[in-house]
Amino acid sequence: MIDARQLERHYDDGARGRLAVLDGVSLTVADGEFVAIVGRSGSGKSTLLHVLGGLDTDYRGQVTVAGTRLDGLADAALARFRNETVGFVFQSFHLMSGVSALENVLLPARFAANPVGALHARAQAALARVGLTAAHGARAPGQLSGGERQRVAIARALFSSPRLLLCDEPTGNLDAATADEVVALFKTLNAGGLTIVAVTHEERLRSAASRVLTLAGGKLS
């Protein structure tokens, strides 16, 4: 699913000078794996995830995800890759306020190359997959609990039936019980064949993963 080689990413950070966040990271993830990436704050976990998901283009090295070579890909092609092949889940949900949860779930369709019809039905199905009802879908994000919001965000990531889910601290903003539910959901999704790479600090997510990697000093081990 993922084949990344010799990834290098640095920031030019005024006072501190050149900051090598990724310093020769190589990573292979097989189809259907559930990989957890851990590391101290600031070790570059989010940076790595953005490179793997085609959100960051300012790196050196080679990345192939689900058969698509990402390095050097033009903006439009990368956008299409993000739209169809990967789904992102963030720590702070990042839902659009002022519009319904359902509208949030079908956001990817607004940017799809060929939006398939029956968008609402598909969005409802995605909500059902994460354990939410049509009533939840009708509400605005502000009217949902934290756990429900993260489920909506996961439903949005699942909307386009991606092959890879990239999660950045997905349980970081949730209480213990809710976090357990979300982890259980990831396990179910993974059992259904979805490849998951999750960045985390948390033991519960780490223990759910089939493999745990540690990012430190710009290297992955």
Partner: peptide, 16 residues
Amino acid sequence: EKELGVMRAVGASRRA
């Protein structure tokens, strides 16, 4: 800003 970032994440190109 964040919303636009999310749109990029779910498949919006710069042009879009």
